[in-house]
Design a protein around this nucleic acid. Structure first.
Lengths: 160, 160
DNA sequence: CTGCTTGCAAAGTGTTTGCAGGCCC
DNA sequence: GGGCCTGCAAACACTTTGCAAGCAG
């Protein structure tokens, strides 16, 4: 028995619910759980938002100013490779990160005008994905970049 | 009568076929046709490729080393606003540019692994576009960012 | 103690901007 | 010859990297 909170599954794979589960996943690959990594996970878990690396940094820094920018970038990359974090490329300011949650799988759309990022149903592009795979051999990963366009209010503003 | 090549339409709007037509479109807005702009248009017309700003610069520089990087960026932006050039955001190295051609309207997909950009049928996302507009008020501009995924060969390489 | 991770600082990439002079129309 | 455009250089935002020390397991 480990020191995991009662009710936790061992979870050395799949979508983890606690920091200790992520720690186990890291150790299973010969990697380690550290202060900065814990801090980044906490920030991502606190809010269900799409945070830029810089936004993660400043929230981490609020509680622990010692954590360096480079460590945040390296942590986000490590957690992405683990499959615990997903990153989405957006056009405005780089890359957005969030925890992977089974219940919350979704796609992204970004407004070209105001930069806001919206969540879309996960299955929106399923048909297109199948079509691309069969007809072109291209394996779409639809969640990896935000679709671009105009949100309702920006669109109306353009017409007026 | 302007000095346009015989057979040219006046074209102060729509998709132009010659540099003089673009010049007319610029003048109609109080802007000007210049050496650097001509050079950029020539480079884009020579190849039906997706060129990065830096690639445009180096091809322009091959014939006219005096043209500055900043002018290429400003020209590409000016021509985009005119509607003569389209830009597509790709994840690897920034932004890709190409001339707008009615016959060649298309979407883009980029391989996450090798970075190659593929053209896709223009109507691929028409249904999704209509759906998003009606149900979410989001007006998709599907050609503005490249869809992401893995091309056939990179996908097969991952599985092996 | 082994070696994965960190903090630091510097470099890197792609792009933008302020300014004085130059050239289009 | 008015003012849009240019070349120049510096700044910009975001991200990556080499290195020696630090800490997890």
């Amino acid at each position: 028995m480990s020191g995991a909170t009662p009710g936790d599954a061992p979870a050395t794979h799949g979508v983890p619910a606690t920091i200790e589960q992520v720690a186990a996943m890291l150790r299973a690959r010969g990697e380690r759980m550290t202060g900065p990594r814990r801090a980044v996970l906490k920030v991502l878990a606190e809010r269900d938002e799409h945070l830029s690396a810089e936004a993660v940094l400043s929230r981490v820094a609020a509680h622990d100013p010692g954590v360096h920018r480079a460590s945040v970038y390296r942590t986000l990359e490590a957690l992405s490779e683990l499959g615990v974090v997903q990153h989405v490329h957006v056009t405005h300011g780089g890359t957005a990160y969030h925890l992977v949650r089974d219940e919350r799988r979704h796609l992204h759309a970004q407004c070209r005008s105001c930069g806001a990022v919206y969540d879309l149903p996960a299955d929106l592009l399923d048909d297109v994905e199948a079509d691309l795979a069969h007809r072109h051999g291209f394996h779409l990963e639809a969640g990896h970049v935000a679709l671009s366009g105009r949100c309702r209010s920006c669109f109306e503003q353009l017409s007026s």
